[in-house]
Amino acid sequence: DEFHFHWNGRDIRVRGDSEELRRLIEAIKRGELSEEEIERAIEILER
């Protein structure tokens, strides 16, 4: 699976399928994380 979302003017695409990944992306979409937490998560996910 590939998750695709927009954040902070960026087009983010992440491959993978796990419950943890889904929860993280939902939290990002709901605005539950700080900008710094989101940046760090995206860096890890894009590897």
Rank of each mutant, 00 (worst) to 15 (best):
I25L: 09
R15M: 12
K29T: 13
H4D: 07
G16L: 05
R30K: 14
I12R: 01
E32A: 12
S34A: 09
I44Q: 08
A27L: 12
W7T: 01
E46P: 01
L21Y: 08
R13Y: 15
G31I: 02
R13W: 15
G31S: 04
V14D: 02
I25E: 05
I28V: 05
E19F: 07
R30T: 14
L24G: 00
R23Y: 12
G31Q: 07
I28M: 06
R15P: 15
H4Y: 13
E37P: 00
R40H: 13
H4G: 04
E26Y: 12
L24F: 10
E20C: 04
S34P: 05
E2D: 13
E43D: 12
G16H: 06
H6S: 08
E20T: 08
N8E: 05
R47W: 12
A41Q: 08
E35V: 13
D17V: 05
S18T: 15
H4Q: 10
R47T: 15
G31D: 09
H6G: 02
L21T: 14
R30I: 09
I28G: 01
E32V: 10
A27R: 11
I25W: 07
E20V: 11
L24Q: 01
K29V: 15
E2N: 06
E32N: 11
E36M: 10
D1F: 10
E36Q: 13
R13K: 15
K29L: 14
I42R: 01
E43N: 06
I25V: 14
D11Q: 05
S34H: 05
N8M: 07
R22I: 14
R40A: 14
L33M: 14
R23E: 14
I44D: 13
E36D: 12
E37M: 06
L33F: 08
R40L: 13
E32D: 13
D11P: 14
V14K: 01
I25G: 03
I42M: 06
A27N: 08
G31N: 13
R13F: 15
L21A: 15
I25F: 07
E36Y: 09
R15F: 14
E39T: 10
R10D: 02
R23P: 08
L24Y: 04
E19S: 09
R40P: 02
R23T: 13
H6E: 10
N8C: 02
G9M: 01
H6I: 14
D17Q: 06
R22T: 11
A41D: 02
L24C: 02
A41M: 10
L33W: 11
F3A: 02
D11V: 15
L45A: 02
D11T: 14
G9W: 00
R22C: 05
N8P: 00
F5R: 00
G31T: 02
R47Y: 14
G31P: 02
R40W: 10
N8F: 03
D1N: 13
E32C: 06
G9V: 00
H6Y: 08
R13M: 15
E35L: 09
H4P: 02
E36W: 11
S34M: 08
K29Y: 11
E37T: 03
H4C: 09
R10K: 11
F5T: 00
K29M: 10
E19R: 07
I38S: 03
F5M: 04
F3Y: 14
E46S: 04
I38K: 02
R15V: 15
L24K: 01
R10T: 04
V14M: 05
E20G: 08
E2M: 09
D11R: 05
S34D: 09
D1L: 11
R30F: 13
I42L: 08
G9P: 00
D1Q: 12
R22D: 05
R10S: 04
G31L: 04
N8S: 02
I12V: 08
L21C: 06
H4L: 13
E20I: 10
E20R: 04
E2P: 04
I12D: 00
G16V: 13
E37I: 02
L45F: 14
E37K: 03
S34I: 04
K29W: 09
F5L: 06
H6K: 10
N8R: 10
S18L: 09
L24M: 07
E20L: 10
F3K: 03
R13L: 15
I38V: 11
K29H: 12
R40M: 13
E46N: 07
I12F: 14
W7R: 01
R30V: 08
F5P: 00
V14T: 03
L33Q: 02
E37A: 10
R47V: 15
L21Q: 12
L45N: 01
R15W: 15
R10G: 02
V14G: 05
A27I: 07
E26V: 10
E36L: 12
A41S: 06
W7P: 00
I44Y: 12
D11L: 13
L21I: 14
R15S: 14
A41I: 14
E32R: 03
E36S: 12
W7A: 02
L33P: 02
E19I: 12
R13T: 15
D1K: 10
R30N: 14
G9H: 03
I28W: 05
L21V: 13
I38W: 04
